[in-house]
């Protein structure tokens, strides 16, 4: 089982140096995790390191395919408010 980086990654490099398994590498259009190398940080740290430093909600999927950092979890912006604000901007 492994974590996975998906397209909302902004290539900020934060996760790459903190991975204890050297599973993360720079790639285009976005960074990737080598599923064969990812240990889920088991045995090294209590929390998966990439998930703990990544600033972008939804950039990393957990082994069940769910957003490891769900909407609103990092920014503190309630998802409804985010939707409203986006609608307001669109309507301008």
């Amino acid at each position: 089982m492994a974590y996975e980086i998906i397209e909302s990654c902004v290539n900020c490099w934060a996760c790459e140096p903190v991975c204890p398994s050297k599973a993360i590498y720079e790639a285009r259009p976005h960074f990737l995790i080598d599923a064969k190398k990812c240990t889920e940080c088991d045995g090294d740290y209590a929390d998966p390191q990439c998930v703990s430093i990544c600033p972008i909600e939804g950039a990393i999927l957990d082994p069940f395919g769910e957003w490891a950092n769900p909407a609103g979890a990092l920014t503190g912006i309630p998802p409804e408010r985010m939707r409203e604000a986006m609608a307001e901007i669109q309507a301008r």
């Binding site: 903190v18 740290y45 430093i53």
Partner: peptide, 10 residues
């Protein structure tokens, strides 16, 4: 500040 990354934890 909503969070910091500190000593391997958020």
């Amino acid at each position: 500040y909503p969070w910091i990354f500190w000593k391997n934890r958020r």
